[in-house]
């Protein structure tokens, strides 16, 4: 990965952390505490399927992308980094 793409990914990860915390009202988490590779669901941040819906709506409004018709939802929604990678590849 080139340095430009690397820094784009880092910046997007930071933005997504702030957005996720705000959209999902995660009052007890700060962007600094949330690692790029931390699991969003289950044992990690503990999000559930309704949170996934809020993330979908957020991605549509912020980046104009619809992850609803993708085949690998589970992989995309694994962590902040996988979400950021998906956004970079698909945003309009």
């Amino acid at each position: 990965m080139s340095e430009d793409k690397h820094s784009e990914l880092d910046a997007l990860c930071q933005q997504l952390k702030v957005d996720l915390i705000e959209w999902l009202s995660l009052d007890d988490v700060t962007p600094e505490e949330l690692g790029d590779d931390d699991a969003l669901f289950g044992e990690g941040l503990g999000l559930d399927s309704l949170d996934a819906v809020e993330i979908v709506v957020m991605l549509q409004r912020q980046f104009g992308i619809s992850p609803t018709d993708m085949d690998n939802k589970k992989e995309v929604f694994t962590s902040v980094k996988t979400l950021a990678q998906y956004v970079i590849e698909n945003r309009k």
Binding site: A52, V53, T68, K74
Partner: peptide, 14 residues
Amino acid sequence: DEFGGMFGVIEALQ
């Protein structure tokens, strides 16, 4: 499914 069918609901409502 892993997201409790929620993506299917979004797609249908869209």
